[in-house]
């Protein structure tokens, strides 16, 4: 099996661990990953201004790149890229007036009418690989690791692009269970991590992140799984500060779901780039015997 893949800028820099673990896992699962040529930034945040179509040009251009390659699906990993690409795709598919305007402006590209489906990796794994096959491929089951699936905002909202209905976490739950982990549901699984509020002032973002981490800990989780670099930044990279300031009691290491998948499939920890996670992450996996023997 071969997929067309859109990485996104952050996955080439600060969140290289999200991508590296995914690519290594897919290789184990026999999926060939073909990164689309000449991709550009997705825009990161979907523009809500109805008549400001220039902000749809970036995401649509990436979908054109996939169409040019003959792909009918474009798989992506980052929650925000997924959201931005999928929503731009909806506009082009459903709104013929806006579609024409965008196509006319992009006179340097082939016409695009929403032919490519934007697919999040979790959906891809559930639909095209299947939990059964993943269960069979597991080499180091994550037995005894208590993980909360954390979706944040952009995987489920708005409903017409959500990877599953609001309030349901079955995809990440299905994956984590297939890997042998104990899934710990918690109330803040779709609470905003604070997002870019951190740029306006640290206080607000910190307190919302603290609510999420404490809620997961109270539910009994010892780790969080996410698919978003911004969530990982607010919940993971800044967790130490939250502990120092007393807003969070005990660490709850934050992982990308692809890293948990990779270690369970027996991928060497070095290939999962844990040095980009908070320091407690790798230590937890070692403690729980979740790493393949060196």
């Amino acid at each position: 099996m071969k997929i067309s893949y859109y990485p996104g800028c952050t996955l080439k820099t600060k969140a290289a661990n999200l991508e590296a673990a995914a690519v290594a896992s897919l290789a184990v699962l026999g999926v060939e990953v073909e990164e689309i040529d000449r991709w550009n930034c997705c825009g990161a945040v979907f523009s809500l201004t109805a008549d400001d179509l220039i902000h749809q040009v970036g995401p649509v251009r990436n979908l054109v790149r996939a169409k040019e390659k003959g792909a009918d699906q474009l798989v992506t990993l980052c929650s925000m890229c997924y959201n931005t690409l999928a929503r731009a795709n909806r506009i082009v598919r459903d709104d013929t007036v806006k579609r024409d305007t965008i196509n006319r402006f992009m006179d340097d590209e082939i016409d695009y009418a929403g032919e490519v489906e934007v697919v999040h990796m979790l959906t891809f794994l559930a639909r095209e690989v299947g939990w059964q096959k993943i269960r069979e491929a597991v080499k180091v089951p994550l037995t005894g690791l208590r993980v909360s699936p954390y979706y944040g905002c952009t995987l489920q909202r708005p409903a017409d692009v959500g990877i599953e209905p609001f309030g349901s976490f079955s995809l990440m739950t299905g994956l984590l269970e297939a890997l042998g982990a104990t899934v710990v549901p918690f109330a803040a699984a779709d609470t905003c991590c604070g997002s870019y509020q951190v740029l306006n002032g640290e206080g607000g973002a910190k307190s919302t992140a603290a609510v999420i981490i404490n809620d997961a800990a109270q539910a009994g989780a010892e780790a969080l799984a996410t698919s978003c670099p911004l969530c990982e930044y607010n919940l993971g990279k800044r967790q130490e500060q939250l502990i120092t300031s007393g807003q969070v009691e005990a660490p709850v290491p934050t992982f990308y779901f692809t890293q948990l998948l990779a270690v369970a499939l027996g991928v060497a920890p070095e290939s999962c780039l844990f040095d980009l996670n908070d320091a407690a992450s790798l230590a937890l996996l070692k403690n729980k015997n979740c790493l393949v023997a060196a």
Binding site: N40, G43, I54, H55, V57, G58, D108
Partner: peptide, 19 residues
């Protein structure tokens, strides 16, 4: 950058500027 690609279209050296 909004990926409008006007830069690439303008380049007399055919450089992929957006790229």
């Amino acid at each position: 950058c909004v990926a409008c690609n006007l830069c690439t279209k303008a380049c007399p050296m055919d450089v992929d500027v957006l790229g």
